[in-house]
Write a protein that binds this DNA or RNA. Structure first.
Length: 361
DNA sequence: AAGGTTCCCAACCGCGTAGTG
DNA sequence: TCACTACGCGGTTGGGAACCT
């Protein structure tokens, strides 16, 4: 019973690989293939366990490994795929030629994750940070309350909504705790929302709209959309979603997210007059890929037989929303860092006007 | 220059699961 | 069906590099 020890016993070596070890492993695999990893080290004359050899090969020695910095396109693809697949690093790596799951995982944890947090995006859900959204919601509702209480028309001063003192106090508290401990703040607010049905609906709505965010990410970044991104065209994106649903048949958030795509075009299927591109529809996804009749039936029930990702991706209405217009673009980064700016361009969310998010961030 | 801190990434660990007898 | 092996995956860690004070 039990698992056989890997490296701990038998005097097997651990830690960094030497050049000699690399050469032995390389030579052996080039001559014989890796075969059984378990027996490889013995045959190759290495004092390593098979697991260590496999890792060294797949993450470093494999000839098709691409080295160096991740390109903009790769980073964009990772974010898109992570929004669909979550922490399925191997699945993400499978769509990024030459990159390993370990490399992508490290890159996510050390760079992208932090970048998203800086931009107010929750790296787990890919939704806007709930704390900031709630603040916006509070300020928005205060507009209504203060208008009635003070009998001052909204925006009558030409500088956005009036905010009462209580809301200002709450906002200050929110923001200060956000700066002190953003992670904890997010957690606390999410817990609060679970006790607050109204906000919970908002939260679930955002979770369910992850895919929508992904679509906006793609379309809102014209220079990096399907035309220039070598990794994720619309078919690949659809396939990734379909695979995700196939593997997670109870993931209602994603099932719901598909019809929610209509909201991109005005919130209702009937308004989607531009959805006429016949080249890619839900019906074009083989059931063998989706494994989910519900995926297709959902689409059909929403009159989406002509639904096309292309139409979503290429529709200019969202891509051209100017900065500082209403609804204002949330998470529009500054220009100080080109990469950040680039990234923030395809992570845009609507926030009521009158809230200076840049000042908060 | 030196010590401390943070960042980054290669490698490890343990679990889940497919395959096999 | 069960026991076991082998592999692959995702989370975590350790140590060197880079940066800061």
């Amino acid at each position: 019973m039990g698992r056989t020890p890997c490296c701990d016993k038998n005097g097997l070596k651990k830690g960094p690989w030497t050049v000699e070890e690399d050469q032995k492993l390389l030579d052996y695999i080039q001559k014989h293939g890796h075969g059984r990893w378990r027996t490889l080290p013995k045959n190759a004359g290495l004092k390593r366990c098979g697991k260590s050899c496999r890792l060294r090969w797949t993450n470093y020695l494999r000839p098709d490994i691409k080295r160096g910095r991740f390109s903009f396109e790769e980073e964009e693809a990772i974010i898109q795929l992570h929004g669909i697949l979550g922490n399925k690093w191997s699945a993400i790596a499978a769509r990024l030629p030459g990159r390993t799951d370990n490399e992508i995982k490290n890159y996510w944890n050390t760079r992208i994750r932090k970048k998203l947090l800086r931009m107010g995006i929750d790296p787990v859900t890919h939704a806007p940070r709930i704390d900031l959204l709630e603040l916006a919601s509070l300020l928005g509702s205060s507009l209504y309350n203060s208008s009635s209480q003070l009998n001052v028309p909204a925006g009558s001063l030409g500088m956005g909504p009036m905010v009462n003192a209580d809301v200002l106090t709450l906002a200050t508290a929110l923001l200060s705790s956000h700066y002190e401990n953003p992670e904890l703040q997010l957690q606390n607010l999410q817990e609060n929302q679970l006790r607050n049905p109204q906000v919970q609906n908002q939260f679930e709505s955002f979770q369910g709209n992850n895919l929508q965010s992904s679509i906006q990410e793609v379309q809102a970044c014209p220079t990096s959309s399907a035309t220039s991104t070598p990794f994720l065209n619309e078919t690949q994106l659809m396939q990734a979603i379909a695979e995700h649903l196939f593997q997670n048949p109870t993931d209602f958030a994603y099932q719901n997210s598909l019809p929610n795509l209509w909201q991109v075009h005005g919130g209702h299927p009937s308004t989607a007059a531009s959805f006429t591109n016949p080249t890619l529809s839900f019906d074009s996804i083989p059931s063998s890929i989706t494994g989910h009749q519900t995926l297709k039936s959902n689409a059909v029930s929403n009159n989406t037989q002509n639904f096309s990702f292309d139409s979503v991706l290429s529709t200019p209405s969202y891509t051209s929303t100017p900065l500082n217009s209403s609804p204002m673009n949330y998470a529009k980064g500054s220009t100080e860092d080109e990469r950040d700016s680039y990234c923030s361009d395809f992570l845009m969310f609507d926030i009521p006007s009158g809230l200076d998010v840049n000042a908060i961030m």
